[in-house]
Design a binder for these strands. Structure first.
Lengths: 193, 193
DNA sequence: CCTACCGATCGGTAGG
DNA sequence: CCTACCGATCGGTAGG
């Protein structure tokens, strides 16, 4: 009962800050900007959060965790590389479109993380990229995908996926599933043997 | 003779600032950071430049102009949509890889432009995107490309191209031409009918 | 290119 | 959640 009282303002701060970080960038958004938007004084924010960076940290690592959950489900999968790729693309787009403000911050503002969080974040990013690459490598080995530089292919695919958050809208004409289906189709045609 | 003396320090400031804007972001890079890197006092920068934003403005609009030059050459072209697409992709990658620091700033920091530059920049961006779309539309009309949402296609293609600056290196194993050939091949296979 | 300095604003704390 | 405030730093100017 008592704990419940404190949950709401903290979440409100996070939602507002996330949107403002997306629009203006982490560094150019001040605590006073955020507090004004919420109709309170800047000092009052600190009853609910520890620091400005705590907000950035939570956003970045919450999304990173969601992306890693996707990898987990693939780990024991018996599917072929095409199916794995489709599963990964679908899940990736699902995470990215769920909260486009958070996605934009996750993709663009992580470099403002201080150590050791900055390094930790880059490690996770690297691991995710590698999981992507290993699916492509498997496909190449099995002769399903074109024999090309799979690092180049992985980066190209990921960049195409990671642009979705800039234009996706829940009210738009494409659902997350339709987006991933189309992307998968373009990508598979682009790389298949 | 006399003018020549002033050219060099200004360019040095621009090069250093561009690199630092890319690494740390425009807002988080202070004039004192830049001056320290150059071994001078912050106040001394203002003998060569007008303001911090002038640097950002020059980078963004210089690259924008280069991208528009590409469009110009295509305007009177008699090529078909596939050839036009290939020409555009090749030129786009050429511009992006020429100075990856400037490209990163151009792509990520333009939102810190103040008015009226911010609006002007977004207009140019929009126009470029439209030129891309009209090539795709022509390809669809002629039955060369798949009948899909060409806005979606254009954004997907551009995002794949616009990631190149993050990993391209002049010392790397792929030349700009090889990169654009590979990208064109993936993209064309992905969208052709 | 420097010293000296401006007003504004920053993230954050003390104490209630 | 507020008032009052901290030291640090910001972009930029005056004057040489």
């Amino acid at each position: 009962m008592l704990a419940e009282v404190k949950i709401n303002p903290r979440e409100k701060i996070f939602l507002t800050a996330t949107r403002m970080f997306r629009e203006t960038g982490f560094s150019a958004t001040s605590m006073r900007n955020i507090s004004k938007e919420l109709g309170i004084e800047a000092a009052s924010l600190y009853s609910h959060i520890q620091s400005k960076e705590e907000i950035l940290r939570e956003i970045c690592f919450r999304l990173a965790a969601e992306f890693f959950e996707v990898l987990q489900t693939l780990e024991n999968s018996e599917e072929g590389p095409e199916e794995k790729l489709k599963t990964l693309i679908t899940a990736h787009i699902k995470v990215l479109t769920r909260d486009t403000n958070a996605s934009a911050v996750f993709l663009n503002e992580w470099r403002h993380l201080s150590e050791p969080f900055h390094s930790r974040f880059m490690d996770m990013r690297q691991k995710y990229e590698h999981a992507f690459r290993s699916i492509l490598k498997e496909g190449i080995r099995l002769g399903k995908f074109k024999a090309a530089d799979e690092k180049f292919m992985a980066l190209t695919i990921l960049s195409a996926l990671n642009w979705t958050h800039t234009w996706y809208s829940p009210e738009g004409k494409m659902s997350p599933e339709q987006i991933s289906d189309q992307l998968y189709s373009i990508i598979l045609n682009g790389i298949k043997n």
